[in-house]
Simulated assay, not measured.
Amino acid sequence: MSFFSLIPDILPMILPSAVQVTRATDLEAQRAGNSSPMIRQGAVIVLIAKPQCSSAVHHHGEQDTIIYAASGRGILVTNPGNEEEPKLKRQELSPGDFAFIPPWTEHQEVNDTDEDVVWILIRSGPEPIVVYLTDWGGDEAKAE
């Protein structure tokens, strides 16, 4: 291993990234002018899942993700991807709940209720990474 291969790991410790603040007023302004179910601002995302819908199966590459359930009752489906837990895991998130999704973990957000579900997602890194998959354990989906 050469010194140069360590630079990407050492550099953030020496020169940390700038602090990023996301203002509630900025999110509300985007929400008011946006018909999409997802509002993005840097690494903070407000996910508004309409009734009876789900996201595509995806992961966030090397990024950690923290979910805060703000309102509604949604389901987080994850693929543990190991021999100890070979089946998909469904976990209900109620208002006030938190979930941590490790890097590379396949997951899907599901709203099978008749009410909106609002989750606040926070990811490591300045810009969110989303890798859509063809199915659980599937290949990366081609961009259309």
Rank of each mutant, 00 (worst) to 15 (best):
Q20F: 05
N79E: 13
P95A: 05
T113D: 08
I66V: 15
A141F: 02
Q91H: 07
Q108G: 03
D114A: 15
A143M: 10
K142P: 03
Y132H: 15
I129R: 01
L76Y: 03
V46S: 03
V118A: 10
V118T: 13
P16T: 10
I120T: 00
Q30K: 13
A69V: 06
I48M: 09
I122C: 02
P8K: 08
E83F: 11
Q108A: 07
E85P: 02
E28M: 11
V21W: 02
D114G: 15
P80Y: 07
P95D: 06
N34P: 01
N34M: 11
V130P: 00
Q108M: 12
V46L: 15
P51H: 10
T113R: 03
P37W: 04
A18K: 11
I10M: 10
P95L: 08
T78W: 09
E92N: 02
S36D: 14
P126G: 07
R40M: 06
F100P: 04
D9A: 06
E62R: 07
A49I: 04
S54C: 14
A32D: 09
S124H: 10
A43L: 01
D116R: 04
A49F: 02
E83Q: 12
S2E: 13
G42C: 01
W136C: 02
I67E: 00
M38Y: 12
I129W: 02
A99H: 07
I120V: 11
A18T: 08
L6Y: 10
V131C: 07
H107T: 02
F3Y: 15
M38S: 14
V44S: 04
A143G: 05
D139E: 15
E115P: 02
I129D: 01
P126W: 00
E144V: 08
R23D: 04
I129T: 11
E62P: 03
N79Y: 09
I75C: 08
I10C: 09
F4C: 03
K89I: 14
R73E: 15
S55Q: 10
E109F: 09
A29F: 10
L27P: 00
I39Q: 03
A29P: 03
L6A: 13
E109R: 08
G137I: 12
A141V: 06
I39C: 05
Q41F: 01
D135L: 11
Q91A: 11
G81I: 06
V46D: 00
D26N: 08
L76C: 08
L15I: 12
N82P: 05
P51T: 11
A69D: 04
T105D: 05
S54K: 14
I120Q: 00
S35R: 13
N111M: 09
E109G: 09
L88Y: 06
S54H: 14
E109I: 07
I120D: 01
L93D: 01
Q41M: 05
Y132I: 06
N82G: 13
I39Y: 01
I67Q: 00
D112M: 05
E92S: 06
Q41A: 02
P102R: 15
D64H: 14
Q30S: 13
E109H: 15
S55R: 03
A70S: 10
Y68M: 09
V131P: 01
V130M: 09
L11D: 06
C53N: 11
S35N: 14
V46M: 12
E140F: 03
Y68I: 04
Q52E: 15
P80C: 11
D64S: 14
E83N: 11
L88H: 05
N111I: 04
W119R: 06
